[in-house]
C-alpha cells in the first residue's frame, strides 16, 4: 500500500515522539508499504488557531496514497478518503486545561467562540475518519466524552532495550516535564516545604513559560528551599541526561489529566519508581500502585510524605523501579503490532 504519514512539527519537539514516528515509518516499510511524509508546522500558542486549522483543512490529498495515517493533531484535518487517526492530544488549553486553574490565558467571549468553533470542527473531522485510535485509555475516554467518538487504544511502542544503566542512587527526585501550568511544577515546589527527610528535587525541564519559572523561583526563596531544589538545563547531552535519570530515587511526575503514558514508560526504562497523582491521567494506566510506584492526592503534604518514604526506604523504591522495568519488558508491544492494528 502507499501510505501517507501526516503529522505536525510543533513547538513540542519531543525527541521520543520524533523517534517514534520514524519507527512507524520503518515498521510500515518492513511490511512492504511505501511511505511518504507530510509534515506541517503548528503553533499551540498562537491566537490564530482557526486559521492554522484551516491551513490543514485546505490540504486535499485525495489524489495521493491508499491510506493516510494522521499522527499528531491537527493532522487529521487534512482531507483524505481513507484517513486513520491515531489521537494523542490536541490543544490542551482548549480541552483539559479549559476552565481549570491550569489554564494559561483568561476566558474571554472571543476565546469562548473560538473554542466552540474548534470543538465543532474537531468533532466533525474525527467523526469523518475511516478509523480513530487513541494513544492511551485517557485519550480515548476524552474523545468519547467530548465528541462521542469511540476510539480503540493503541499504545506507542516505546523502545525498551538499551540505555538502562545500573541504578546508582543519588539523593534526589527528578522532575523532567516542561515547566507548564498543566504539569504543576508549583505543586512540586510546594511539596518540598513539607518534606522531613534530606530528600532533594531536581528540575531538568524546558521552561516555555518564563512567568511560571519566576513564580517558582520566588516561591523557593520565600520558603528557603534553595538547598533542596536544583535546576539543570534540559539541553544537556544525551549521556548526561541519562546519568541524571540514572541517579535519581524516582521520577516525580504530577501533571493534571495527561493523555500520555510516556512518564511511566520512561521511569520504568531507567528502573525508577514513579511518583504521580491520582488525577494525573494516563501515567496511571501503566502504574501498579505500591508495586511500580505511588499515586497520591495532588496535595503537597501527601506528596511530601511519599518523597520522604522513598528516601527512607530506598530498597523498596529500588524494587519498584525493577518491577516497573520487568513489567514493561513483559508487555512485548512493538511497532509491527502498532502498524498492524492501525491498518486493520
Amino acid at each position: 500500500m502507499k501510505i501517507i504519514l501526516a503529522t505536525q512539527i510543533g513547538s513540542a519537539q519531543e525527541l521520543y515522539h520524533a523517534a517514534g514516528e520514524l519507527q512507524i515509518a520503518g515498521a510500515l516499510q518492513r511490511s512492504g508499504h511505501q511511505v511518504e511524509w507530510v509534515r506541517l508546522p503548528f503553533s499551540n500558542n498562537s491566537p490564530e488557531i482557526l486559521e492554522q486549522i484551516l491551513a490543514y483543512q485546505l490540504l486535499d490529498l485525495s489524489a495521493y496514497g491508499d491510506r493516510l495515517i494522521a499522527l499528531r493533531a491537527p493532522a487529521y484535518f487534512i482531507q483524505h478518503p481513507h484517513k486513520v487517526v491515531w489521537f494523542g492530544e490536541f490543544l490542551p488549553e482548549f480541552y483539559r486545561a479549559w476552565n481549570t486553574p491550569y489554564q494559561t490565558g483568561t476566558i474571554t467571549p472571543a476565546l469562548r467562540r473560538i473554542r466552540e468553533l474548534l470543538l465543532n470542527q474537531d468533532k466533525k473531522k474525527l467523526g469523518a475518519a475511516h478509523a480513530v485510535f487513541a494513544t492511551s485509555r485517557n485519550a480515548a475516554a476524552k474523545l468519547k466524552q467530548c465528541h462521542g467518538i469511540n476510539a480503540r487504544v493503541v499504545y506507542p511502542a516505546y523502545p525498551m532495550e538499551g540505555g538502562i544503566p545500573d541504578g546508582i542512587c543519588g539523593d534526589y527526585f527528578l522532575f523532567y516535564a516542561p515547566l507548564e501550568k498543566l504539569n504543576r511544577p508549583l505543586l512540586a515546589v510546594e511539596s518540598m516545604r513539607w518534606v522531613a527527610s534530606p530528600v532533594k528535587l531536581v528540575f531538568c525541564s524546558p521552561s516555555p513559560d518564563p512567568g511560571l519559572r519566576e513564580q517558582m523561583e520566588k516561591m523557593i526563596r520565600q520558603y528557603g528551599l534553595e538547598s533542596k531544589i536544583k535546576f539543570l538545563s534540559p539541553d544537556c547531552p544525551e549521556k548526561e541526561a541519562g546519568e541524571i535519570m540514572a541517579q535519581c530515587f524516582g521520577v516525580l511526575h504530577i501533571p493534571f489529566d495527561e493523555n500520555s503514558v510516556k512518564a511511566a514508560w520512561l521511569a520504568g526504562r531507567f528502573k525508577k519508581m514513579l511518583l504521580t497523582c491520582s488525577d494525573s491521567g494516563a501515567p496511571l494506566e501503566w502504574l501498579e500502585p505500591g508495586q511500580t510506584g505511588l499515586a497520591v492526592k495532588p496535595v503537597p503534604e501527601d506528596i511530601a510524605k511519599s518523597l520522604d518514604r522513598i528516601y527512607r526506604e530506598q530498597a523498596a523504591g529500588k524494587h519498584m523501579g525493577e518491577r516497573a522495568l520487568a513489567g514493561q519488558l513483559r508487555r512485548k508491544h512493538d511497532w509491527n503490532e502498532v502498524v498492524e492494528r492501525l491498518l486493520a
Binding site: P41, F42, S43, Q52, A55, L58, L59, D60, A63
Partner: peptide, 20 residues
Amino acid sequence: HPPHKIIENLLTCRFLQLEN
C-alpha cells in the same frame, strides 16, 4: 488539479505558523 487547488495550496502555506 483542478487549478483552484493551487490557490488552496498557497493559502495552506500562508495560514501556517512556524514557531520556535
